[in-house]
Design a protein around this nucleic acid. Sequence first.
DNA 1: GAAATAGTGTCTGTCAGACATTATATA
DNA 2: TATATAATGTCTGACAGACACTATTTC
Lengths: 237, 237
Amino acid sequence: MALKPSSPASTTEFPAVICTVDVVLLTLKDQALHVVLVDRDRPPFAGVPALPGGFVHVQEDATAWHAAARALQEKAGIVSPYLEQLATWSGAKRDSRGWSVSIVYYAVVAFELLPADRPGLRTAPIDSLPSLPFDHGEMVATAVARVRTKSQYSSLPIYLCGERVTLPQLQAVYEAVLGEPINKVSFRRKIEELGMLEPIAGETTMAGAHRPAQVYQLRPQYRRKLSVVPRGINALG
Amino acid sequence: MALKPSSPASTTEFPAVICTVDVVLLTLKDQALHVVLVDRDRPPFAGVPALPGGFVHVQEDATAWHAAARALQEKAGIVSPYLEQLATWSGAKRDSRGWSVSIVYYAVVAFELLPADRPGLRTAPIDSLPSLPFDHGEMVATAVARVRTKSQYSSLPIYLCGERVTLPQLQAVYEAVLGEPINKVSFRRKIEELGMLEPIAGETTMAGAHRPAQVYQLRPQYRRKLSVVPRGINALG
DNA sequence: GAAATAGTGTCTGTCAGACATTATATA
DNA sequence: TATATAATGTCTGACAGACACTATTTC
């Protein structure tokens, strides 16, 4: 049990662990959840689409969260307003280079905020993912489950929308995330209870031969913080 | 961006990260949640009570979960039936020895399963914790919050009980964990719905001058798996 | 006015919690 | 029989979901 105090981890008795971060960045495209993938720029799996991520840079990153934010910026060109830790995958077998740890974060972002034509960047629908390297498939599945759970009782899906949104639009977003229809009256009651939106006075969409919808915007105090309700938007029990 | 393929992490461009695990082991003593602490056996903070944990041993531990289970066994002498990942703490500042990662697990265990008189092992009530080294205080707070949340809709608190339990006993455990009284009728409805317990035919406690309580045991299929209900034991909203 | 979607009023079934009642032990 | 706790029956208020109705636009 060596490792001298105040020295970096010895590579003799405790060989260095490979420490990386990965980000499951989810977005909504064609009314379906998609995950953002980037082509890996080095082996293993060079050129293969994978989650944006990379090594922790101990000189540069104050914490793994900062490493994840940096990876998201460098690999996908995105600064997400919401970036939260998901879980950590680790072990001897998951990476051919050695015993490795990946601290995984997830983010949700409006499709319009993604860079338009960035080489090597793509989105894949979560219902028909390509085979992903390492345990990235499992990470995506875990992130989707987390986002679905959180969406049942919080304002999380608002980050999938643009700055301004109508209630019918927002309901369609919730339904796409949760994967099932929501009662309109109940939905509006919950959004009211969440209290995160405010109507933009006088502003309505005129999107067809019917009554226009009121346009809302996110209240400033919820731009980076979720609002939650105790009993959930009961799309399912 | 060095790091040659299929070689261990270079210590030049990416200095080794210190990779540890910690375990927040919670138990119930005198009807109050306690956390298990062990005296640290080396610097920094040698001799100070802290969470059981230690370095990942890359030769020995298949994953961080296995490292946590091993730490729990070695430091606290416990094999917990429930050991789940909580979150990961990381950063340059949290450990004086360098940039470090701690993958934290939490476990809940009946007080009777703790070793009786193990030197350096103690429990501390979570309401009046001593000052803990590193960010262990934050880890305990996060674990307690997680256990409270999970207890609202799952059978998690059953792991705080012995093999055989009565419903009044179990209700007292839930109340201790959640920190507030629960309606008796609602509680029994939820336990029924969870379906994890079966009555032991004919077996009752005779603990005083009153009607005895039926003794139950955990159904085998829930010995290592939680049972959950959709809408929760509504102690709070 | 017809059509289409936005938005609201109201009823009902479900469920959590309150309260009351019955059951069973000891003293 | 008194007392204490276990266990259950029943009522009620809150709330989610269903349904119907009104509102407002274009054609």
